[in-house]
Nucleic acid binder design. Sequence first.
DNA 1: CGGCATTAGGCAATAAGTTGCATAGCAAGT
DNA 2: ACTTGCTATGCAACTTATTGCCTAATGCCG
Lengths: 182, 182
Amino acid sequence: MALSHAILTALLDEDLSGYDLARKFETSLGFFWAASHQQIYLELKKLAEEGHLKASAVAQAGRPDKIVYHLTKNGRAALADWVQEASRRKPAKDDLYVKLYSVGHTDPTPVIKELKARQQEHGERLALYERIQARHYADPSSLPLQRQGIYLALDAGLRYERTFLAWCEDAIKLLERSQSAS
Amino acid sequence: MALSHAILTALLDEDLSGYDLARKFETSLGFFWAASHQQIYLELKKLAEEGHLKASAVAQAGRPDKIVYHLTKNGRAALADWVQEASRRKPAKDDLYVKLYSVGHTDPTPVIKELKARQQEHGERLALYERIQARHYADPSSLPLQRQGIYLALDAGLRYERTFLAWCEDAIKLLERSQSAS
DNA sequence: CGGCATTAGGCAATAAGTTGCATAGCAAGT
DNA sequence: ACTTGCTATGCAACTTATTGCCTAATGCCG
């Protein structure tokens, strides 16, 4: 039950429809907790049934109708409880490192290729984070309290991407060197 | 089907029983792909059925019998195929960052508490990585090819933990400052 | 008008992972 | 004799997430 809490969190600020939420999970919050729209719609239904959210149908002109969800007192309390619970570190799961374990036994070429693909991918992500930072979090000391948490999450993302990219570069160098040596 | 590949990878070096594998997944490989013994036993059965592994019962004196698994040609080929497939970046999922999003709306104290707990946890993990590095990977340039991949994975772990700890410290500082200011 | 993208919501099947529990042999300590 | 702990394997129920597919209204482009 973790996506549910991410959804409740997203609804702290504003009432949103499932569709809106899905988009929010493609950017901002989704950087730290990814979810597909299928999952989101399902979870919203459950949360409404449990009384954590209140659903209201909204007719729209020129667009399909939508269902907007509002955080109830109940939901707010459930969220507060969850924030107080200690969460455990998520067990790491990344194919890339597992593949590194096979390096001595098979051709390292595909691993190098993958490292380069990741380099690209993480470089793009870093650029995105940097754009967001420049636009919305350029001056952290003047941020209102409500943005400070998000700023910190973004900062964690920035540091992670930079660290990963630096490692990536070194890893590629090492593997290419040992490849040409053999 | 990802745990299966991690298991195949672990069996590249040596034949192992489910129990042995479970222990391997509590250290080394498990740092990058976590798995419980229940999952491992289940997956081993499947892999044996599919012909990727060959199971052989081994009677032991003074201990319960065990089932040792050996990587077949078939399994080796499947693993090689998998290494060539491009793997996608795992969608990030960490409660901690989601909780940061709720900072302006509720009391930040539990979040600070959690950050400190993580600091502790990641500090211990870093110390563990450093011990492993000092013991087995002190001189990376002299490593045989088969250890270089593992060295790189460990290096990624070291960098990640250090980055996280530095961020953690800054995050705690910022939150405590804004807490006392309010 | 036809086709395509966007907005909006959903179902069903499957895969993957977690939690809790069960069994059983043997060793070593108390 | 009793308990604790390690080795060794497993089942069942459940939650969580992924994949693929579907409907339906509207706007826009050619």
